[in-house]
């Protein structure tokens, strides 16, 4: 692509990173650790630091203490998952899954938010790796819960036979329900997260490249005046989109978590 001497980088330049090790001849071995892997490790370390520092405060004080500082972050996230996700979509018996849902939420959030962190500027979930892994994990978990609570055939019947369907429509509905539960759910879960983050990343890259190009063009002598005047426009757009991407990073973590909770709730209480 070439417009106004603007070169859009090849998508491989935006998404594929060489490993720090295990990287030979342009290909990565199975153990290669690249930028994406480092962001995943960051998404493990950051929540752990927050929660361990909060935990140390409880361990130090015998009496009940008012939350303070970073402890508020930990407690707010726990309270958010409990009140806004579990209580609303599963019910009180879903509190057992709090650690799982909280881990999913924090992991996705911290690997998304690096999209707008200066000098990192890459959402790890714009790679298919973790969205698909987490989607498969969620698929295993909610089906496992359903089978554990209702038995294999009981669960299958709950899934494919929704209550109140006329006999004549049953085969069609059963097929649709089967496909939507066992195929579409994990697929859409993975694709939603991946495509949202990838689209956001491409959008930010587009406006960053545009800002860069327009800025250098404005510095050369034979640039038309109108181009100099619109120089700040892509940059302002970039700022606005950065704010929007922060929202998307939170929202996608929330949606992934609440859909997980809804699927678990559906496996637990099929009547809803």
């Amino acid at each position: 692509m070439n417009l106004l001497a603007l070169t859009f980088p090849d998508i491989a330049h935006l998404l594929e990173w060489p490993g720090l090790f295990g990287h030979d001849d342009g290909t990565n071995a199975w153990y290669a650790l690249n930028k994406v892997g480092i962001i995943y490790l960051f998404a493990f370390v950051a929540p752990v630091l927050i929660f361990v520092s909060a935990k140390r405060r409880y361990d130090r004080s015998e009496v009940i203490v008012a939350p303070r500082g970073i402890q508020n972050v930990a407690e707010t996230s726990v309270g958010f998952i409990r009140e806004n996700i579990i209580m609303q979509s599963i019910g009180p018996d879903g509190l057992r899954y709090l650690p799982f849902l909280l881990s999913i939420f924090l992991f996705i959030f911290f690997s998304n938010i690096t999209e707008v962190v200066p000098l990192i500027h890459f959402p790890a979930n714009a790679r298919m790796a973790m969205p698909v892994t987490l989607a498969i994990l969620v698929w295993l978990v909610f089906n496992g819960i359903g089978i554990k609570h209702h038995g294999f055939f009981g669960y299958l019947k709950n899934v494919v036979v929704p209550p109140g369907v006329p006999k004549a429509l049953l085969p069609l509905v059963a097929l649709i329900e089967f496909v939507s539960t066992f195929v579409v759910r994990p697929f859409s879960l993975a694709v939603r997260l991946f495509a949202n983050m990838l689209a956001g990343h491409l959008l930010l890259v587009t406006f960053a490249v545009l800002s860069h190009t327009v800025f250098w063009l404005a510095l050369t002598d034979d640039t038309p005046t109108w181009l100099v005047i619109i120089t700040p426009a892509p940059f302002l757009m970039l700022i606005g989109l950065t704010g929007f991407e922060i929202l998307v990073a939170v929202l996608q973590a929330f949606i992934f978590t609440i859909l997980t909770a809804v699927y678990i709730g559906g496996a637990l209480h099929p009547e809803h």
Partner: peptide, 25 residues
């Protein structure tokens, strides 16, 4: 500092990323 290797389909997950992501998660 992106990869110089051949461009692969972005829909297909890369195994080494799955490995590190799973370890972290």
């Amino acid at each position: 500092a992106a990869s110089e290797g051949e461009s692969s389909n972005p829909i297909i997950p890369a195994w080494f990323e799955v490995v590190w992501g799973s370890i972290a998660f």
